[in-house]
Amino acid sequence: MIPDNQITLLQNGEAYFPAIEAAFDRAVGEIYLESYIFENDTTGRRIAGALRRAAFRGVKIRVLIDGFGSNSLPKAMVDSLEAAGVMVLKFRPKTSPWTLRRRRLRRLHRKIVVVDREIAFVGGINVIDDMGKPGQTSPRYDYAVSVEGPLVEEIYDSARRVWSRVAWIRFRRGWGRVGDGPAPSTEPRGRMRSAFLVRDNIRHRRDIEDAYLQAIEQAKFEIILANAFFFPGLNFRHALLNAAGRGVRVILLLQGRVEYPLLHYASHALRGSFLDAGIEIYEYHKSLLHAKVAVIDEHWATVGSSNLDPFSLLLSLEANVVVDDENFARTLKHSLNQAIHAGSRRIPRDHWRTQPIRLRLTSWLSYGLVRFMIGIAGYAPGKQSDPA
């Protein structure tokens, strides 16, 4: 944990996009932007316009997007950014829906912005309209944070390293060279203790999961997890069940709408043991839940890109900010409680046992298929992985 930071919670795109756009308009030196999805919609064009304006002022801009998540981004938008001087790279641009090779399943799932080494943004929000689905009446439910203070330098270093590695792999060697920028401010920006955690395929394969496990194992009275794709491994499930067994109130806020059927039904196979242990499960139905956050004992909190599923915990590049601060944790808890009361419904304790046998069978078959997919993708604990 690094002290003296100011971490501000941003809920949904309505808070996030104006904040990063304003930071782009203030930029004088350099901008890094990483996003799994960069969509050619109203929001995407708005952010692209802010990046072009900064580039025209001479700001060095590096945009890294995922080759699968941003596969639909038209070449014309990339060309317009590059014409303004923005450097754009795709992480693993070769994609195929018919392969389960490990390299193809490893995606850039991080959502990071760093501006002038003075302010950074980390979270789960892609560059895409909040109201992007047909018939959607409420915005996609998600979070990010703005970061000011000493922690920004760690986020900057991480973004620079990933960019340089991808530039080298894509034979853009000149793009990977980073000159000496302005030194970051060393003055305290706040009083919050916080940490920046990544999951990569080199030395930090389990940092995010381990931080969750440590906080859960130390929990004394309350755990609140909100996650879009909740499909944790055995150690994580045991940690939650053990916490409930020692009297900790455990609340799970999960996706209620079907976005990806396979993961949706696979996650249902785990609910019976959770409900039997007294864990509260709420399904969010007001809109698509895309959040990846937690609050434990009203002081430990995390916001980031990492789902609690095999693709985030075992395969993708992810980034989370952890904050140990009572005011921040209570702000996030209040926001989650509002979502629980206004947009969710609780799953009854006997819900799983009363489900039709065909639905339970579908869930277990989906569970088995997901585990099989991860297995044939080549994942094995402790196995060395390719660096990108």
Rank of each mutant, 00 (worst) to 15 (best):
S138H: 13
P232V: 04
N227D: 14
E222M: 07
R257M: 08
S287N: 09
S164D: 06
V28T: 13
R346D: 00
I125F: 06
A22L: 00
F91D: 03
G85F: 04
V114D: 01
L51R: 09
F274H: 11
Q11G: 11
G233H: 08
R199E: 07
E217H: 10
I169F: 07
I2Q: 15
R237F: 02
R330M: 02
S194V: 15
R246E: 10
A339H: 13
I202W: 13
I20Y: 10
L369P: 12
P18W: 01
V295Y: 02
P182H: 06
A55D: 03
F372I: 04
M1A: 12
D66A: 06
E259P: 10
L9G: 03
A54Q: 06
R271P: 02
G174E: 11
P310D: 04
P232G: 08
G124C: 07
L288V: 15
P261F: 10
S312Y: 04
L105E: 08
Y367T: 02
R330A: 00
R189F: 03
I223S: 02
H299A: 00
K383A: 14
E14T: 06
R353G: 12
D324L: 07
L336C: 04
G132F: 14
A22C: 05
H238K: 15
E82I: 03
R371S: 08
G382D: 06
E154F: 07
L33I: 09
G69T: 07
L317G: 09
V152T: 07
Y282C: 07
G69K: 02
R103G: 14
Y367K: 01
G272C: 00
Q384F: 09
P150E: 10
V295K: 06
V113F: 13
Q255V: 12
L288P: 01
R193V: 07
I169A: 09
Q6I: 08
F231E: 09
L240W: 01
H351K: 05
A277F: 08
M77I: 15
N242S: 14
S344V: 06
K333P: 13
A22E: 12
F68T: 04
G190Q: 04
I279K: 12
L51S: 07
A22K: 10
V248T: 13
R371L: 15
V145D: 04
E187I: 11
D324P: 00
I340K: 14
K333S: 12
R57D: 06
S158K: 10
R177W: 11
S194N: 12
F372Q: 00
